[in-house]
Amino acid sequence: MSSPDRTGLASCLAAVGYVADGGLATALALMDMLRRPLLLEGEAGVGKTEVAKALAAVHGAELIRLQCHEGLDRADALYEWNYQRQLMAIKAREGADADAVEAHVFSERYLLERPLLAAIRREASPVLLIDEIDRADAEFEAFLLEVLSDFQVSVPELGTIAARSIPRVILTSNGTRELSDALRRRCLYHALDFPDVEREAAILRARLPGIDIALAQQIAEMIAAIRREDLVKRPGVAETLDWAAALMGLGVGRLDADREAVFDTLACIVKTREDRGRLPRAVIERLIGRVA
């Protein structure tokens, strides 16, 4: 398996439409070298999940995603027996040799694979995305740490399942809960921020190939200005892309040429009532005037 170095990786990421800065490319290259998971932290909308998707595309690997939530437990994350099928199988084989039935019922046919188990049983190493780890409980975090350090899972009825391949693991966190020191130490770390104007314009050009270069620049500057306003929910990169697509769909060539369209499409980027109130027409006009 070839693992490209940081510059090679950055251009590979660009080829699949993800514009990464040098620090992130380094961190992704180190993941392969040191075999450590990568913890990405940053506000909602800075493109944490996209990193995993892009990495999977670069390596041509499968992306397995575990979405964390409150109350997530082993049965949702690792494996579960298919009890209904087991019960049916036992009923269907009533009278047969008890040992044979037991061996049959506890075979892999009746094992329901959940993301963590799936990730270590693949032939080619997949990208495992553990999304919003901060939403899971502290207990689950400890359990996850165990799986991530050994890459083996023990199922009492089957024995230990060792990893066929070591997945590349990316964890993301919004910082709604403080993560444990042990997990932070185990992982490489990258703090992801909103992209600067140049990088956001580059993202727009990469994702929306038809976009006018001047318009992309204007949109990037406008979004940067809106993020500096005092908002409850700052628009993320996904919102920028939506907005750019909407403006392109309306045939807007320059923001200052068609202010009406800009105002009408603000719904793409401003998503709470309070924020809408904080961006009245006058403010938008002023911002447009600045980027024009």
Binding site: D5, R6, G22, G23, T26, A27, A29, L30, L34, R36, L38, L39, E41, G175, D181, R184, R185, C187, L188, Y189, H190, A191
Partner: peptide, 21 residues
């Protein structure tokens, strides 16, 4: 070898050593 220069080793060590913002 790729991490022999100061410009490349800094982000690498940063990714390894940092654990929080």
């Amino acid at each position: 070898p790729p991490y022999r220069r100061a410009t490349t080793v800094k982000p690498a060590l940063r990714a390894l050593c940092c654990g929080s913002r």
